[in-house]
């Protein structure tokens, strides 16, 4: 692998549907943490809920085959099912915890996300969720493939070349990202956004001004969680459903992306997600290259490859201490209170 191909692969990440899915999840987390101050450490759980709800609905109910629905309607129905599942999940999480101190929400969300993962990967549910092997992509990609208006073989150029299916998924995923960004921009310049940001600063003060803080926090949790669920759907469209993809580590990567780009900024999550995946791919390629040159001695390639995740951890630590506002954040409007 030469240096150019490393750059090429890294550049390919900019437009990859996975990056889009992460951007979407990060935008959701930005609503939670950046704007409302909610410590949600279970964003991967929302993604898992969305992904499984979408895939299982498509496979089990299969409206295209059983009800004769057109594939677009079936797709929309599956998306709605994913959203409803995320809303219910958010309510279950929020009702007990949003009245408590922030770190309780953190513990409950991270625990709930892991409960989801353990549940979908248990052998007892293999018939529904596929157990630890997850669900095969071809079992739920039928509708979206049927909707694909692209008929050629490949699209794009350079590092951004993709098959017709991949290109179609990219279009859908990035459209959703743009819609989500506009939504956040509209909300955060409105009085609703003002209340949400006020709650982040001091919820008692906002309460003393007659706002139903609990209700607003719940709205924020549901909204950000819904984006997480849609991110989960976008995440599985280019691949299969694998339960261990939705582990705590994914939540932490989303946090890293958010803080990298800048919490409480509209475009921060987008920039952070793109940079995160480009840098991860680049460092991975670079370490591979160095390993090929014998820098790491007798170490196996995959062992050396772990170094980039060490870098992720160190970068997260440095970022949060030395530049907590991220790349796009305003110096005065730091992303942390307390």
């Amino acid at each position: 692998m030469d240096f150019l191909s490393i750059l090429n692969t890294a550049a390919g990440e900019i437009l990859s549907p996975t990056t889009a899915a992460f951007a979407l999840a990060t935008i959701g987390l930005n609503i939670h943490f950046g704007y409302s101050g909610l410590l949600n450490f279970g964003q991967a759980g929302f993604m898992a809920i969305g992904a499984y709800a979408f895939a299982i609905f498509t496979m089990m109910v299969d409206p295209t085959a059983t009800l004769g629905w057109p594939s677009w309607l079936s797709f929309i129905a599956a998306i709605l099912v994913a959203i409803v599942a995320a809303v219910i999940f958010a309510l279950i999480l929020g009702i007990p915890t949003l009245r408590l101190r922030g770190d309780y929400l953190a513990i409950v969300t991270i625990a709930a996300a892991e409960i989801i993962r353990f549940t979908v990967r248990t052998q007892d549910l293999t018939a529904v969720t596929g157990g630890s092997q997850g669900l095969r992509g071809q079992d739920y990609k039928g509708d979206i493939d049927a909707m694909n208006p692209l008929t050629g073989t490949t699209y794009g150029f350079g590092p951004w070349t993709a098959t017709a299916y991949d290109t179609w998924v990219r279009i859908i995923a990035w459209s959703l990202v743009i819609v989500a960004l506009i939504l956040v921009w509209l909300l955060m310049r409105s009085p609703w956004g003002r209340v949400i940001k006020g709650i982040r600063e001091d919820e008692d003060a906002v309460r003393s001004l007659g706002k139903n803080v609990y209700g607003y926090k719940m709205q924020a949790l549901v909204l950000g969680g819904t984006m997480g669920a849609l991110a989960g759907v976008m995440f599985i469209l280019p691949r299969a459903v694998q339960p261990d993809n939705f582990a705590t580590t994914m939540t932490f990567y989303i946090w890293t992306a958010l803080l990298l780009g800048g919490a409480a900024t509209v475009l921060g999550p987008l920039l952070g997600s793109i940079l995160f995946w480009v840098l991860l791919s680049f460092t991975g390629g670079l370490i591979n290259l160095l390993h090929g040159l014998g820098i790491f001695g007798a170490m196996t390639g995959s062992q050396a490859g772990q170094l980039r995740f060490v870098l992720v951890g160190l970068a997260l630590m440095a970022l949060v201490v030395f530049r907590p506002q991220g790349i796009l954040g305003n110096k005065k409007e730091l992303s942390f209170n307390v």
Binding site: S190, P191, R194, V195, R200, K211, L334
Partner: peptide, 25 residues
């Protein structure tokens, strides 16, 4: 509310704001 401007702090005090509903916003 430290990271809101003085004016935003003030506006937060106003009652019955239509724009404080999620959809109207």
């Amino acid at each position: 509310l430290g990271r809101l401007t003085v004016l935003q702090n003030m506006l937060l005090g106003a009652r019955d704001q239509r724009g404080e509903g999620l959809f109207a916003a």
